[in-house]
Design a protein around this nucleic acid. Structure first.
Length: 669
RNA sequence: GCCGGAGUAGCUCAGAUGGCUAGAGCAACCCACUUGUAAUGGGUAGGCCAGGGGUUCGAGUCCCCUCUCCGGCUCCA
């Protein structure tokens, strides 16, 4: 007998008892259990537990439980693919957020029909009630098992056995999972095997709900110089209901696509004539954008920033000094040679700016600066151009020309922490104002392994400062190793939209390199020249990107203060156009954006158009409203109200717009 | 950039296996209707079928190249 425990509870079970038996003995096997955790380590339910183990259950409806399920379904999918395409070589198949994938090297890419066939085969495999049998093997054995699987071999080869296990004498260091079918007579047939840490679901028929979603190309190990494999994405859930919910969520996301809504609501336009990643804000989109810009322009001034304006192009030399041409060249548009003579001699090359920093530095350097001036915060809505790879542009979310609400704060080293913290606070205000709530994630990115400049000491100090800044605000954060910019570490702030999707928005970066390269100085109290630190920060990140997030988060139904048309006045007949115009004038007087629909459409159609354009308020006016000097209010969301005195409505909506109210229904579409 | 898919009217889409002057709904414009809470009726106009090459008696349809878009990879604000 051995002892197992679960919190306070302790119980004796037979030697070699499985995790399942242990949990049952502990009365902890309740609900839908997918696996166990033994002394903190994820554990197959049918794997024996050691003496004295702390055993816990992993429920299927937890993130950990779903990961295990998805990983197992990935195995079943790969097995189905191997059955249908015997020559397929398999790559890796991990769980990912909301699903899983598996990569295959196959002759011809998969089609949607193939996915159906694979699903059918998976259904068959599931009915076979295959067990996932765990086995520990040595490196030599692993290489033998995967003799005809070059990608698996590569994974095995890469691992230094001595690192995985101190017993580097050929002892077990890898785990493989064999999918086996147990016959009636106790015989076992092996169906498939994969290299895997596990754990897995107890049996293949345990899968409650799954669906294959799409195929895509993906580089082996994510490296462009390696072969392109065919990836199949799928999802799996603890219940049919949960799967359904997820699929509905995907549909909901598709409905909110800012490219689709941008077109439907006439917000933005991407004419092919401009080229990929270059868009136009149509009048209605421009209003939303202007409201965003107005807010940030007011706020930066309120917070002690000073506005500057800088050009969009500059001589190439500038980008040599800044280091962009050495570290960033592939993202810059090529040079424009101008002023050369007919032989091509002389002249200068110019470049479109991919960043605003050097310009703000030159603004700082326009004269000698004193320590008394610091921190000096320069701010601009700076439009930059980056030659993004053609495959990555995505509407306004990822454009080749975009506008950063960019600021560079020049400060003394002892001011860095406070300035960085103030930026994070500023970002929180921004998210609250725009209906995104509190940041969902704050990530501090450290020095990249390659392509970075500056001394280790400076990097360390800068990284420490950012951590200190976030900690001073009492906020949680995570460290993203090696994800910093080439000139310094950064804080990236993420937020969730109305349907729970996370977006990376704000970036706050510390830079000690550009001040060095441009020889930026200030005169200290001691009369000597000192080097300031520079904090780069963009709170919206990119105005265009944030705009796209707003469109998707509000599903195009903007709160009143952002809505392109805030009030639409609909007279029930031409006789009332005069009063409709009067109503409109009263609202415009308060700075509200109002349309009057004096078209000869039917009332029903006018209301329909007003509603489908997601106008916050539609006012219906006819004889009774004229008589009472009132309006009938039909809000986009909420109850209709009749006989609202005009003066009251004007005050009410003006206040709502002025206070930038985010209504409760925001984000419901 | 790479892998796959797709491009027909301003928008959403029909146009099997090549075969008459390429269709519909919405939007636009004109006419009539003058409306009380989500689509009034009639008419007109609108297409180098993404662009360019080919195959063919004949190409929106088949082949090749280019451009653009979509889903991913990689990268990123």
């Amino acid at each position: 007998m051995i002892t197992v425990k679960h919190g306070e509870a302790t119980v004796e079970v037979a030697e070699h008892a499985s995790a399942r038996e242990a949990l049952q003995a502990l009365d902890a096997f309740r609900g839908q259990i997918v696996a166990a955790r033994v002394d903190g380590e994820p554990w197959d339910l049918d794997r024996p537990v050691p003496e004295g183990a702390e055993v816990e259950a992993i429920r299927a409806d937890t993130e950990e439980g779903r990961e295990i399920l998805r990983h197992s379904v990935a195995h079943l999918m790969a097995q189905a693919v191997t059955d249908l395409y015997p020559d397929a070589k398999f790559g890796i198949g991990p769980p990912v957020e909301n699903g899983f994938y598996y990569d295959f090297d196959v002759e011809t890419p998969f089609t949607p029909d193939d996915l159906e066939r694979i699903e059918q085969r998976m259904d068959e495999l599931m009915r076979e009630k295959q067990k996932f049998r765990r086995e520990e093997v040595s490196k030599v054995e692993a290489l033998e098992i995967f003799a005809d699987q070059p990608y698996k071999q590569e994974i095995v080869e890469k691992v230094d056995a001595s690192e995985v296990d101190a017993s580097a004498d050929g002892g077990p260091v890898f785990t493989v999972y064999r999918n086996v079918v147990e016959g009636e007579d106790g015989g076992v047939t092996e169906r498939w095997v994969d290299l895997c840490r596990g754990p897995h679901i107890p049996s293949s028929d345990w899968v409650p709900a799954y669906k294959l979603l799409r195929t895509a190309g993906a580089y082996w190990r994510g490296r462009e110089d390696r072969p392109m494999l065919q990836r199949i994405y799928g999802t799996a859930w603890e219940s049919r209901k949960a799967l359904k919910q997820h699929l509905v969520q995907l549909e909901e996301a598709a409905k909110r696509d800012h490219r689709k809504l941008g077109k439907e609501l006439e917000l933005t336009h991407f004419p092919g004539e401009l080229g990929p990643g270059l868009g136009i804000f149509l009048p209605k989109g421009a209003i939303v954008r202007k409201e965003m810009e107005d807010w940030i322009r007011e706020e930066v001034l309120r917070r002690g920033y000073e506005a500057v304006y800088t050009p969009h192009i500059a001589k190439e030399d500038l980008w040599h000094i800044s280091g962009h041409l050495e570290n960033y060249a592939e993202l810059m548009y090529p040079g424009m040679d101008v002023d050369a003579d007919t032989e091509g001699r002389g002249g200068s090359a110019y470049r479109l700016k991919p960043m605003n920093c050097p310009f703000h530095i030159l603004a700082y350097k326009s004269r000698t600066r004193s320590y008394r001036e610091l921190p000096l915060r320069l701010s601009e809505l700076g439009t930059v151009y980056r030659y993004e790879k053609s495959g990555v542009v995505n509407g306004q979310l990822r454009a080749r020309g975009f506008t950063q609400d960019d600021s560079h704060i020049f400060c003394r080293p002892d001011q860095v922490v406070a300035e960085a913290a103030a930026c994070v606070e500023f970002a929180r205000d921004l998210y609250r104002t725009f209906g995104l709530g509190e940041p969902s994630r704050i990530a501090i990115s450290t020095r990249p392994e390659e392509k970075s400049i500056g001394s280790d000491e400076d990097w360390e100090l800068a990284e420490k400062s950012l951590i200190e800044a976030v900690e001073s605000l009492g906020l949680d954060y995570q460290i993203d190793e090696g994800e910093g910019a080439f000139y310094g570490p950064k804080i990236d702030i993420h937020a969730r939209d109305a349907i729970g999707r996370e977006w990376q928005l704000t970036t706050v970066q510390i830079d000690f390199n550009l001040p060095e390269r441009f020889d930026v100085t200030y005169v200290g109290e001691d009369g000597a020249a000192h080097r300031p630190f520079m904090v780069h920060r963009a709170l919206f990140g990119s105005i265009e990107r944030f705009f796209a997030v707003m469109v998707e988060s509000f599903a195009g139904a903007f709160p009143t203060w952002l809505a392109p048309v805030q009030v639409n006045v609909v007279p029930v007949a031409a006789d009332f156009d005069g009063y409709a115009n009067e109503v409109s004038a009263a609202l415009r007087e308060k700075g509200l954006r109002v349309d009057v629909d004096a078209s000869d459409d039917t009332l029903g159609n006018k209301i329909r158009k007003s509603t489908t354009s997601k106008t916050p308020y539609t006012l219906i006016v006819g004889q009774s409203e004229v008589d009472a000097r009132s309006v009938a209010v039909r809000p986009y969301k909420g109850d209709q109200r009749k006989d609202v005195p005009l003066a009251d409505f004007v005050e009410e909506v003006a206040a709502e717009a002025r206070d930038r109210v985010i209504p409760e229904w925001a984000g419901q579409g």
